[in-house]
Write a protein that binds this DNA or RNA. Structure first.
Length: 558
RNA sequence: GCACCUGUAGCUCAGUGGAUAGAGCAGUGCCCUCCGGAGGCAUGUGCGUAGGUUCGACUCCUAUCAGGUGCACCA
């Protein structure tokens, strides 16, 4: 709203429209430069005057409304100072009015969003690299819900294909297959198949039987896959990550959609049969390498089924259609998107993230150097419970879980999507500094103060003199609260959770500074105390809103 | 070889083309008579390299070096 005002003010005096001006306004990074600044360089050519002269002239002409206290020119900049009392009242008023909607633009109200994420191969317990998909995906879902979208989260279950076939073969005649056995089973059969061509043939035979509708084989596949999906989703559910729909890849095998797609591509002359008899899509006009969609025996490959699935998702006609994929799938997804476009659909928006690496190198299933998500979670819970005991409390596994899972997610969410996360056990389990526990701790402190002040039950409808909040720590905190809606917008543009985690950390730090310098309970007088109570209520509200977006649960004590 | 992503402090990372590039960790020295110390204070010669665009470049463009990833019957 302050930027709006400045835009209007300046539009009366310079040859630009309001929107152009607003785009140029920057938030000052230095108190001496006020709160907002308008750089006059771009006007220099138009007005044929030196930027500094323009700034000086504008400073003379402008009549400031009440919400600004001062406007001065410093060199080529025109600096605006907001009126602190007005600003305090405005920000705290906005938060107390909008509550859990503060920060939301509401742009998604009445709109639907289909979001696909996780979609891990059902062959083993997820490692932390795969988990990044779920964590980023869950963040995107929560963010869009916060923006008002009706979000449905889909999980594509890859219940067919060579890998699953190997798993089924590896399980043999075993009646009961346990989730925890799958990883070993998978690694073992993988090695055996590599060395034994005969075994590999059996893998493909199984697949052939499945694709040709052998009921018993189909049941067995489904049984094994479900054990795996159950195990995987249980882990993600623990972390507060949930799914609305599980879409089984095999459904596209039996509904003729694969044949339809091949026929359409043939009609368009986009697909050719290579010398081995495989169907290959030519994507030269997109500058992409060709994509093989069937084996020589014409059984489908994953890309073909994925095209069918993607088109199926498009048929839901949602306002937004989003998929979360690893950076390694970038070229692949471009190919899929090109084909889907050719077939007359608008492909999903894609959000890519990079990998999780270990400090001493890459993760490798074969070398046993993967870090499983469940191990990471368990270690974090132990560590959090130790912390609880150290602080003189009884061991409390439930509370430890909330703290630990927040820490696990936060550690994965604070890196921007396009960068690799470098995983280091010690750092990942550290609860000091820029971590989930630190920000939770701020929240706990606020609640502790409010409880001691009896603020939660107090009548907070009376008038408050916000001009009393005039210490630096107070105005810094309020400025940070004011920034939240913009931060949410940035997160929506980038779909990267680090935007929110960095904001929360800054907010927590500013609260700590306030906590140190400004007493609430023992404030100098009751007016000041009331104003500060409103302030920390606002901080708590914004923390809760932000926690909701990154999927962090709160605790009452630590 | 081609394509995409990433090079910012010892380490891990922020930084919508605008004023003096910021955090956390580790190190060093301090602070528990203070609404909870999972805290705070002090301490720093850094934008891979070279050009270019611009009034202005960590940010945009080109080249180059380094790392990651992908590129025909895995999914």
């Amino acid at each position: 709203m302050y930027i709006d005002h400045i835009g209007e003010l300046l539009a009366q005096h310079v040859p630009c429209d309001k929107e152009e001006i607003k785009a140029l306004i920057v938030k000052s990074d230095n108190k001496e430069h006020g709160d907002f600044a308008f750089p006059c360089f771009p006007l220099a050519k138009k007005l044929r005057k030196a930027p500094a002269a323009i700034a000086a002239e504008l400073a003379e002409k402008i009549e400031l409304p009440d919400c600004f206290s001062k406007c001065e020119n410093v060199g080529p900049y025109l600096n605006f100072f907001v009126d602190q009392a007005h600003f305090n009242g405005y920000v705290i008023g906005e938060i107390s009015e909008k509550k859990d909607r503060y920060g939301s633009s509401g742009i998604g109200v009445g709109k639907a969003c289909l979001l696909e994420h996780t979609s891990i191969n059902p062959n083993a317990s997820p490692h932390i690299g795969r988990a990044r998909n779920a964590i980023v995906g869950d963040f995107v879902g929560r963010l869009l819900k916060f923006e008002g979208y009706d979000v449905k989260v889909h999980y594509f279950v890859n219940d067919i294909g060579k890998q699953i076939s190997m798993l089924v073969l590896g399980a043999g005649e075993r009646e009961e297959v346990k989730f925890d056995d799958l990883l070993n089973l998978y690694v073992d059969i993988n090695n055996r198949v590599k060395e034994d061509p005969e075994l590999e043939k059996q893998v493909f035979d199984l697949l052939y039987q499945l694709e040709n509708g052998d009921e018993a084989v189909r049941k067995r596949f489904r049984q094994i896959v479900d054990v795996c999906i159950k195990g995987q989703t249980a882990i993600f559910n623990e972390l507060g990550i949930f799914y609305d729909c599980f879409d089984y890849e095999s459904q596209f095998l039996f509904d003729n959609s694969l044949e339809d797609i091949i026929r359409q591509l043939l009609d368009k002359g986009l697909v050719f049969e290579d010398d081995l008899g495989r169907y290959v899509v030519n994507l030269e006009k997109y500058g992409l390498s060709p994509l093989v969609i069937t084996r020589a025996d014409k059984t489908s490959l994953y890309p073909l089924r994925d095209i069918a699935y993607t088109i199926w998702k498009c048929s839901h006609n949602t306002d937004k259609n989003i998929i979360i994929l690893g950076q390694d799938q970038e070229l692949y997804f471009k190919q899929i998107a090109a084909i889907v476009t050719e077939l007359g659909h608008r492909p999903p928006e894609v959000v890519h993230y990079s990998f999780v690496m270990l400090v001493d190198g890459k993760m490798s299933t074969r070398q046993g150097t993967v870090v499983l998500l469940e191990d990471f979670m368990r270690e974090a819970v132990n560590k959090a419970d130790e912390g609880i005991v150290e602080r003189g409390d009884q061991s409390d596994p439930e509370r430890a879980k909330r703290i630990a899972y927040g820490a696990v997610k936060y550690s994965m969410e604070k890196t921007s999507n396009e960068r690799n996360v470098i995983f280091d056990w010690d750092k990942a389990l550290s609860f000091d500094g820029d971590t989930g526990p630190y920000i939770l701790y701020s929240y706990v402190r606020i609640n502790s103060i409010l409880k001691k002040c009896g603020a939660d039950s107090a009548d907070l409808t009376g008038a408050v003199d916000y001009s009393l909040l005039n210490r630096e720590a107070e105005s810094d905190l309020i400025t940070q609260l004011y920034a939240f809606p913009d931060v949410v917008q940035k997160a929506v543009r980038e779909f990267s959770p680090h935007v929110i985690t960095h904001y929360i950390f800054d907010l927590a730090k500013k609260f700590s500074a306030f906590y140190r310098e400004c007493q609430v309970m023992n404030a100098e007088d009751v007016q000041l105390k009331n104003a500060r109570i409103r302030l920390i209520l606002s901080v708590r509200q914004v923390l809760e809103n932000a926690f909701g977006i990154i999927g962090m649960e709160t605790v009452e004590h630590m």
